[in-house]
Design a protein around this nucleic acid. Structure first.
Lengths: 351, 351
DNA sequence: CCTTATTGCGTGCACGTGAACGCAATTGCA
DNA sequence: TGCAATTGCGTTCACGTGCACGCAATAAGG
């Protein structure tokens, strides 16, 4: 009919700018060999036509292997970061671009290992980096190095402030913490609740869940000022000690009916919770074991997001921005937080 | 290194089957001009190599326009089906295939208009049909006609039973109804609750939310057997009469503290709910106006799914199956139901 | 001023698929 | 038997992009 505006191609841009297709391509990918004047004309033509590359054609054509380095915590089977890793692998496999992952895994409880892995990463000179900001200062200075070296990077799941124009993909952790607290307390007004912290080493430096926990505490303080939050530390390395420790706490505080964790391992408390059906429990993250605890009723709600899907999304957006040789159009790519309950977990992506 | 299995192409299949690339293509797309023997060899080669077409290349190459007819309820601005329509349009625009939508919109309250539109649809002989099953029997017989004519089709959001090997994309409505009831009641045990039904004509035949409402009622009956459900009908055409009608009900049943709707228009009750903060309210579907009521605290929870996103997903999967000239690999494509609350609505897809 | 880099630009191939075209062999029909 | 229609198959172009290559014009260096 009348609209029928056909999508512009490089050829249209070339014609509009009065140059050849190859020149347009060189400008777009900043591969040099063109004059400032030509660049201006080409960019203007791109603007005017509203051109953007056909991703299908780009993927089909791209023969170059892009090496993406992932600087994330090491993991054991079934842990949070294994899900992230799986998301990365899946996306790399069928993104259409030729992505090659190089994993640099550090120990979350050991700054030294982070520094070591980040040094190794620099040696391998990848085409791009995806990283998680566990150790705030160290990550910030590492980010500066990347920026200075001209290596594009993106934050997954955790960012450091003050890094502008950088992609971040992840949830609003503080808000998730609030949401967890809301779901735990809802219409109740308990005098005391229990926050279980599951840590290998309670004195180490990194704290990936700080914002989430802060959100939880902020919510309690604001909406339930009469409620006091007890904290119990448990060590995931000695699972047998968990139930006794909690039983001891409960015997000392028999009024407690509400429990939460702020990391991803509430499943470790499942045996204890099974023995205490009167305790309402809220946890985070859709690990398979957590889902199981939810399905069996030991946990009431999980606040989560599609972990592997988030990693995929992060790599996808990042790879697209690399293919355009330009920073991602969206700086902060916030992921929706899901409330998971026994009644809506069946079709949740890969539980 | 050793794995390095490269993804097989049509050429690999052709070599494996001892024929040319064109022959493989004709077999895959069932375009005739090949012997039964050849077909067998080609199919076996496809199996053996695990071949599946490169979607990027397919999209790039496909010049054919595919006409998809959508047989769905007519809508006004801001209504549920407008979101669906938007999802269709977006996906058609940037699916990469050359999709051309033809909308056949019928009046949900009028079987005749459905029959009329479905007749018009048949006349236009589309390449595929996406439809919603409002009038069960009529849809079932229409589906038979489509099957007999060899026109592929898919159900969105509502299906009729007994249609095998057909794509369905949507939520588990019964389960969503249960979830809504759970969220409404949670730890409470009220004597009576109010179910508001918003209908233009309470005697018409179609009932798109029957399963959802049934799920709601089933949950109440099973988990709160002491609770009685009152139903009030209101007419969306006369919004001024809504609040008075509900006030009247409340004055007659002063104990009611829980309210739900099972269609998508709880936003119509926002003024009433604003005047009754003591009433807990749960609704369905992330219409902008519903989101607003959630944000402002008149509604406590929405049970929903990404409406436009679901429509996109439906069209995407359907178009892919058309391009493969084969029924979709997954028959029932269930969509996860989301629990929406004031604290997790900010990053929900297009509210 | 001559030789060699460098700059600026155009051309051509490849990616994997869809689908039209063309050609030979076979079949159908009178 | 003769000629057209059909069947079975291979070849070729097009889709839009990335990127290597190649050629001319200019700049750099002796």
């Amino acid at each position: 009919m009348e609209g029928e505006k056909t999508i512009p191609t490089v050829f249209d841009v070339a014609r509009e700018a009065g140059v050849s297709r190859g020149t347009v391509d060189r400008v777009i990918h900043k591969r040099g060999r063109y004059s400032a004047d030509t660049e201006a004309r080409v960019r203007e033509a791109i603007q005017r036509l509203g051109y953007s590359a056909n991703l299908n054609a780009a993927k089909l054509s791209s023969r170059k292997v892009r090496r993406i380095a992932c600087l994330v915590p090491a993991f054991q089977e079934g842990e949070y970061w294994e899900y992230i890793n799986r998301g990365f692998r899946e996306e790399a496999r069928d993104s259409g671009f030729n992505l090659e992952l190089e994993m640099f895994l550090y120990n979350q409880t050991d700054v030294e290992s982070f520094l070591q892995q980040s040094a190794l990463l620099l040696e391998s000179t990848p085409d791009g980096v995806i990283l998680n900001a566990v150790f705030k200062e160290e990550v910030a200075s590492f980010a500066s190095v990347l920026k200075q070296k001209g290596i594009p990077f993106a934050f997954l799941d955790n960012k450091v402030e003050g890094q502008d124009n950088v992609l971040y993909v992840g949830v609003d952790s503080h808000r998730c913490g609030e949401l967890g607290a809301f779901l735990l307390l809802q219409s109740d007004e308990p005098e005391e609740i229990l926050l279980v912290r599951i840590l290998r080493d309670k004195h180490h430096k990194g704290d990936p869940n700080r914002e989430r926990r802060q959100g939880f505490l902020d919510y309690v303080q604001e909406h339930h000022p009469g409620t006091s939050v007890h904290t119990v530390f448990i060590d995931p390395e000695t699972p047998d000690s968990i139930a006794p420790a909690l039983e001891k706490f409960i015997s000392e505080h028999p009024g407690v009916r509400h429990l939460a964790t702020t990391n991803s391992r509430i499943h470790l408390l499942a045996p204890f919770l099974a023995a205490h059906p009167e305790i309402r429990a809220v946890g985070f993250d859709n690990l398979q074991k957590n889902i199981l605890a939810l399905r069996e009723g030991q946990v009431d709600f999980l606040v989560t997001h599609d972990i592997a899907g988030t990693a995929r999304e992060c790599l996808r957006v990042f790879a697209e921005s690399l293919s355009r040789s330009e920073p991602p159009s969206l700086r902060n790519h916030y992921i929706h937080a899901d409330i998971l309950h026994r009644l809506n977990l069946d079709y949740y992506p890969e539980d």
